[in-house]
Write a protein that binds this DNA or RNA. Structure first.
Lengths: 219, 219
DNA sequence: CAAAAATAATAGTAATACTATCATGATTGA
DNA sequence: TCAATCATGATAGTATTACTATTATTTTTG
C-alpha cells in the first residue's frame, strides 16, 4: 500500500508529483526555503540546485508565491490524513478531540505508521513561512479559488468534536484555529525568542499546553 | 501635557519624529503599507506620496524592513503605555491581569484618554504585516540588537500577574504570548477567512474569548 | 522511427532595493 | 549678516529579481 497525497490543482500548472524533475523541485525547494528563507529563495537558485532551468520550474508553478502555497497545502493534506487516522473508529468525542489536538499541535513521530519523509522539513517550513503565504493582498482571491478549503475543513471537523463535548461553548472554531496557529508560533518563539514561551526544543510543551487549554475550557 | 512615545534608537538612522518630513514618512508610510501591502510598498512610492525623494527616506531608515520594524515597535510602545495606565494603582492581580488582557486583546477606544491618532491604522498594519517582520532570517540579529526587548518585557510583566494568581501554572509566558498573537490572527481571519473564527468585525469577540481562556485556565 | 512533448539554453524586460554624487535651500552661530 | 553646516532634492547608476519569450535539444510514446 502506498499513500498518495494530492494537492489542490489550482496550485500548479503541471503536477509536480507527475515527474522526476517535479518531485526534485518539491524536495529541494523545501530544503532551499528552509536554508535561505522565503525572501532570498528564487526559482533561479532552485533550478541550479536541481540541474534544471527557471523556465522549467515556471512550467510547473505560476510563481514563487504559488510554490509556497503548494507546499503549505501539501502539509495540510498530510495533517488531514493524520487526523483521519487518529480519529477513525473512535466514538468518544473527548478522545477524538484529544487525538486531534495531538495531531494538530504535537510533534510528528518518525517511527509512526505512514511517516512521510518530507514531513519534518515541511513542518519546519510551515513554522517559518506560513504567515507570509496568508498575509498578502491576494488572500481573498486565493480563498475564492478554494486554496483554503482544506484548512477550513480541518478546523471545522475538529470544532465539531468541541461542540459535541460542550454544545454551549461559544467559540469552537476560534479555539481550534487559535491552538493550531499557536503551535507554529510557539515553536518559532522557542528557537528565536525563548523568553516569550515556556516550551523549548529539548522539552517541547506545546501539545501539553494545548491539551490543558482544551481540558480547562471545556470541562 | 503631551505624551511622547520614543522608539528604540537602533531602528532608525535619524529620528523620524524629529522633523516634519520624518513625521510625514511615518503617517503616510502606515497608510501606504495598509493600502498596498508590505510587498508592494516601496520607498519610491512613499517618497512620491510625501513629495520627497528615496534618498531622503534612506537617510532616516536603513531599509524597508527596518521601517516596518520601527512601526511595529511604535505600536508596542503604545501598548506598553496603555498597559501601564491600565494597571497603575491596582493591587489585585486578578484585576491587573484582566485589565492587561483588555489592552492586549481588545479594540482601542478612540474616546479614551490619550488616544493616539495613528493607533487604529497602526493596529491594522500590525494585524496584516507583523508576521513578516518577525519571520525572517535576521530575527536573531535583531533580537541581539534589543529590537524585541519591549515585546518581551510586555509578555514578562503580564506573565507576572498570572504567576501571582496561580504560582503553579506551568506556562505563564506562553499563555500571554498566545493570546497576544492570537488577537491579531483572529482579526485577520474575521475579515478574510471568517469560517476559522467566531469573531467578526461587527461583533468582535476576541477579548471575550481571551478573558474566558484566562479565567478557565487559572481558576 | 517519426511526431509530440518536455526540458534546456539563452536572451531580454520592467521593477526593485538600494548606493552615489552633486546641487540647492534652510538654519545657525560668530 | 554672512559663512559654514546641514538637510533635502535631483539625478544617475547597479545588481538582482521575477518573470516572459524564443529556439534548440532531448526524451517519451504510439
Amino acid at each position: 500500500m502506498s499513500i498518495t497525497i494530492q494537492v489542490n490543482a489550482n496550485l500548479f500548472l503541471k503536477d509536480p508529483k507527475s515527474s522526476d524533475i517535479g518531485l526534485k523541485m518539491l524536495k529541494e525547494g523545501i530544503d532551499l526555503i528552509n536554508v535561505l528563507g522565503f525572501e532570498a529563495f528564487t526559482f533561479k537558485k532552485l533550478a541550479q540546485n536541481i540541474q534544471s532551468t527557471e523556465a522549467t520550474i515556471y512550467r510547473y508553478f505560476e510563481n514563487k508565491h504559488s510554490f509556497l502555497l503548494y507546499l503549505i497545502n501539501w502539509y495540510w493534506e498530510i495533517i488531514a490524513y493524520r487526523l483521519m487516522l487518529a480519529t477513525a473508529n473512535i466514538e468518544d468525542p473527548r478522545l477524538k478531540l484529544s487525538n486531534s489536538i495531538r495531531v494538530l499541535t504535537g510533534l510528528p513521530d518518525p517511527a509512526q505508521f505512514g511517516f512521510i519523509a518530507e514531513e519534518l522539513s515541511l513542518k519546519q517550513l510551515v513554522i517559518q513561512e506560513s504567515g507570509k503565504a496568508l498575509h498578502t493582498k491576494s488572500v481573498d482571491l486565493e480563498n475564492q479559488d478554494g486554496i483554503y478549503l482544506l484548512y477550513k475543513s480541518i478546523v471545522s471537523t475538529v470544532a465539531t468534536y468541541v461542540k459535541q463535548l460542550n454544545p454551549t461553548f461559544p467559540y469552537p472554531e476560534m479555539l481550534i484555529s487559535t491552538l493550531m496557529e499557536n503551535a507554529n508560533q510557539q515553536r518559532f518563539f522557542s528557537v528565536h525568542l525563548p523568553r516569550l514561551t515556556n516550551s523549548n526544543p529539548e522539552k517541547d510543551a506545546v501539545e501539553a499546553f494545548s491539551q490543558l487549554i482544551i481540558q480547562k475550557v471545556l470541562e
